[in-house]
Design a binder for these strands. Sequence first.
DNA 1: GCCAACGTTGGC
DNA 2: GCCAACGTTGGC
Length: 152
Amino acid sequence: MKYWLMKSEPDVFSIDQLKSKKKSGWDGVRNYQARNFMRDEMKLGDIVLFYHSSCEIPGVAGLAKVSRESHPDPSQFDPKSEYYDPKSTLDNPRWFMVEVEFVEKFEDVITLKMLKEKKELENMPVVQKGSRLSINPVSEKEYKTILQMRLG
DNA sequence: GCCAACGTTGGC
DNA sequence: GCCAACGTTGGC
């Protein structure tokens, strides 16, 4: 069992939307490193910290879990989608995604500011300047630290 | 809206 | 294969 942090802009897809849909394919990722995590490493039952980025209060908004492992992201085949990739074919898809299932919405967002104040979390890419990768592995220790912050 | 960081593209 | 130009991310 592994832990992950996945960024999403709440204007595009928020924890509330996941809560009402219950499950959702994590589509639209067009970065090879992030794709490789989804394609190769994210397994059924892995826990996801759902992070809201590019918004008023960036931070961890809740929890999800992997409910289906790697499969091709359908948006790459859809010419009407903003994620359409003309170089992708059904026989040779370029982009893969996992499906995630809602677990919990935190009562209050654990803000980036709070994450930055924790010495234990200083190695997380999300607290570091210029880190843009939208999917990152999280250590068990980091995960537990963040979970404890949710209640206080 | 600004801008630093960084990934991708494409000419050579 | 190099690297400048360009585009995107994301905090502020």
